[in-house]
Nucleic acid binder design. Structure first.
Lengths: 229, 229
DNA sequence: GACACATTCAAACATCTGTTTTAAACATGT
DNA sequence: ACATGTTTAAAACAGATGTTTGAATGTGTC
């Protein structure tokens, strides 16, 4: 008989061999919570909606994860893992040229917006964290975004002929990332300013090409200036 | 004796001649609400916090503005007006060259982030609307962002030698706006990825220059290609 | 000063929401 | 079959929050 949510742990997260029902509700809860958290953010999401969606009882969340935040961190953990798609991993391959790395990362990030299953949970969770931080952001950034960010700094630095931590390199990476995130973070604004812009796979492909062309124009120009001077 | 919040109007919004106290609490409420709404968004903001900050009673909001949403729309109205700074208006001057227009808009938008009073309410409210839309967004976008967006389309179109509504023009404007909003929307992420980046006026000035250089590299390249072909 | 009105205030109300409780259902090993 | 530990279910609890109420206080007019 367990007492308070803050003191008790989620029940026996370790050994689960013969049981299967608990695994099922646990997974159903994480899946349902991912949908709702990604759509509404941590605060605006109610445990009751998650449980209804998962076909579970209201007490299931507190029983399985201790409290709402426990479920949230679990969802974040899954979302970070799911964000490491095959496409993104291929783009991060260190044998690629810097230009191809940049193009690949841009494309992988944009393409994740039109996935069928779990469309873009990760980046939408980050968006809500930016709007209303919860303290869970540090881990999301460290595990989900920093590797890509560092890889981009290296690639951009090589194109422009400057160290990865030079101010121009960092600002350029920010410019690229900003262009990408715009289509997720500012989607409602975009929907009003350009109602005709549908984010179909085809269109996202064109957008990815544009962002890469737009960015490489500057990077190559600076790079040529450096190599000539 | 007024009945329901949905039916009654804010009391006598028209003639206020001799009264001053009502005006004062009204303004204090809008000012306090601007702070809290810009920081936390509509939903996470409590009427009690606004009233405490304004030194008013809990019932003041419902009495003066009907309900929470009434106060919110009033805050949005003020914020849209405050976003039309002298700097931004100067940048939108139609006698400027397209390059100067682009540089000016970028700089004006970034500089509003380090204002002493009401620092960047407008764009932070838009951010929260993007994360959790409330239905008030349409007016904010139409009145606060579309004029700038259209002006940018015209300027960018002139530099690259394409119509304002060409796909390349629109995507390029998106790229510029995305770079700008990144420093507001993704500030928490940025704080973790680049802890050393302080958004002082000096630094924002450098960022504005970078974004303009970064963008104009592509625009001019496309423009030259067009004029030669 | 008395009246009518607008405004303020403290308290209460109704609802929502995270959490806890209590008991029943279930599974498992002996 | 029994005992034991685990999972589910319904209800209740406690706190927060938007809103309303009704009295009290101010404010201007006659």
């Amino acid at each position: 008989m367990l007492r308070t949510a803050s003191l008790r742990k989620a029940p026996l997260a370790g050994r689960r061999s013969a049981k299967k029902a608990p695994e099922l509700t646990r997974d159903k809860l994480i899946d349902a919570a991912g949908h709702v958290f990604a759509e509404r953010g941590f605060r605006a999401t109610t445990i009751r909606e998650i449980c209804k969606r998962a076909g579970a009882n209201v007490a299931a969340v507190n029983y399985t994860f201790g409290d709402k935040m426990g479920l949230y961190t679990e969802v974040l953990r899954h979302s970070v893992r799911a964000a490491k798609t095959a496409t993104m991993n291929a783009a991060l391959d260190s044998s690629l040229s810097p230009e191809d790395t940049i193009r690949g990362v841009i494309r992988a990030r944009l393409m994740s917006m039109c996935r069928e299953e779990r469309p873009d949970w990760h980046i939408r969770l980050v968006m809500h964290e930016c709007s209303q931080p919860t303290g869970a952001m540090q881990r999301v950034v460290d595990e989900g975004m920093r590797p890509i960010y560092d890889r981009m700094k290296a690639a951009v630095g090589r194109v422009i002929g400057l160290p990865p931590d030079h101010e121009t390199t960092r600002l350029s990476v920010n410019s690229i990332v900003g262009q990408i995130l715009f289509y997720t973070f500012s989607r409602p604004v975009l929907a009003h300013l350009q109602p005709e812009l549908k984010l179909t796979p085809n269109q996202l492909d064109r957008i990815a090409d544009h962002i890469a062309d737009f960015s490489l124009a500057y990077l190559k120009k600076v790079g040529q200036g450096k190599s000539h001077g």
